[in-house]
Design a protein around this nucleic acid. Structure first.
Lengths: 270, 270
DNA sequence: GCAAAAGTGTTATTCTTACACCCATGA
DNA sequence: TCATGGGTGTAAGAATAACACTTTTGC
């Protein structure tokens, strides 16, 4: 611990009388299952926005912007989601608040000239998923480009690390939660659900064991319908069981209620 | 999604040109193993600070304060930890960023008069643990009081919910990480380590199975020493194996490096 | 010796994993 | 009929959990 501490004897408390020298921004890692070719497996993609200003002008960055005083953090992220995709549905969850004094990628001195240290920005980053059924309806804009999450170019600021962290968190979360369903539409086959797991975990799963594990979790319901027209046995269609509890954010549900009602279709909180 | 969205057609990007209308604060949930009576089991306690100003004047709140522009979020939390306890060691990790427009406990209208909605504060909350060997050396101050985490009075703002969430996160984390060691000193017995687990998980653990599970994880090393003077068989003293990797924050280690070097003794990151 | 906690052994149960094999459809 | 993925069976191995039992100290 070095210098900038208050005089000894001072007691810290949650004073609200700060001089606002730090900017607050909200960005969102928006993930969706996509593929380029018809017979290629799906993988995770995300929309990025080309920067029109310095620093990092011309490079791609996560969609986001400054926090409006009248919006909650989550509402702000939902609003970014809507602006970047045109969609109002999807799962949304806080990822992390990034707030180093200089938030730049790689060795810092390499960038000291392009980003003036005077601008201090703390970014609260969310991550979102959008259902595969909505992917085709996403907004098209010349400054928005969808890219594969596992094959990104160098992004502005520290956004590469942020995406990596989002993918890491998702990888963990898919193991103990039902988050994978949020990447699919209302009805889906087990093979589609497994493809989501495989794209997130980046490894193949045994179809037989996967089926039994999902069945044991009781998270899905057989609709009785089947998909026909495949060149093999027609797979059953399932839907997510919304009545089942979902181990997720714990006692934090209340903080998500507002944006939930407005923007969530796949409510997965207790 | 309702009204306060920018005009359609606007593309979101990570602009740093916000008008700073939102205050940024950092608070810390500081947890330690304590007990009141000598033969009572340990439980989780935390230091709280009595508020000297409105709103919630006289009530207790989490230690914290506004973010200084020259401090990272984690440095700010470490500084709070130092001011509230007098200690510079301990584990420190970001918990969540709370930023509803009105952050008040319970039904909001009950409080609309005491906390003017004009003041918008976003709090980035950290949680910390301090080793049991340092607990006796914590700072004493008339406005700081340690309380049992599972038996708190009504705190200022939404700080009860924040503490509950910290305890929930800790409960999860103790199962898959080695975080429990951060509540103990350099050397400890298996019974002491088990007491940490039991205090966090709020349930008794089988000593025999606990011993084998910890042994299987290879996270501890037998020092060869024993504790004598007990009225039973002298238990072995172990120490934490710092060379073992620790599944923790994933690719986020880099963001913790700075405060780490300054304030961390129990480095548990990859 | 006795109480108390340290520490070991044993067994039943459940979960995980690998893989063999049958089923139902379109071409 | 054959290729293809849907779907079921089975058995080995690992992790979990419950609890009996032995060990070593202080009193």
């Amino acid at each position: 611990m070095s210098d900038p501490l208050p005089p000894a004897g001072a007691v810290p408390e949650d004073s609200s009388h700060a001089h606002a020298a730090v900017q607050l921004a909200v960005s969102t890692v928006i993930l969706a299952m996509r593929r380029e070719e018809k017979d290629e497996p799906h993988s995770l993609w995300l929309p990025l926005v080309r920067r029109l200003r310095e620093p990092f002008k011309g490079m791609f960055a996560l969609p986001g912007g400054p926090l409006s005083p009248e919006l909650s953090l989550e509402m702000s992220a939902a609003s970014t989601l809507e602006r970047a995709t045109g969609l109002v549905s999807g799962y949304l969850e806080q990822l992390y608040a990034f707030g180093r004094v200089h938030r730049l990628p790689g060795p810092e001195d390499e960038y000291d000239e392009v980003a003036p240290p005077s601008e201090r920005v703390v970014s609260v980053v969310y991550w979102a998923s959008i259902p595969a059924t909505d992917v085709a309806n996403t907004r098209v804009h010349e400054n928005i480009r969808w890219m594969r999450a596992d094959d990104l170019p160098r992004l502005a600021f520290d956004h590469n690390e942020i995406v990596d962290y989002a993918l890491y968190r998702l990888k963990n979360k898919v193991e103990y939660s039902r988050i994978a369903h949020s990447f699919l539409g209302e009805e889906f086959t087990l093979a589609e659900l497994r493809e989501v797991y495989e794209a997130i975990l980046q490894r193949p799963l045994d179809p037989a064991n996967f089926r039994r594990q999902i069945a044991a979790s009781k998270s899905i319901i057989d609709t009785g319908k089947r998909v026909e027209g495949t060149r093999h046995r027609p797979p059953r269609l399932f839907r997510y069981d919304h009545t089942q509890a979902f181990a997720d954010q714990g006692p934090l549900g209340m903080y998500r209620a507002a944006a939930h009602d407005a923007a969530m279709r796949h409510d997965e909180n207790p």
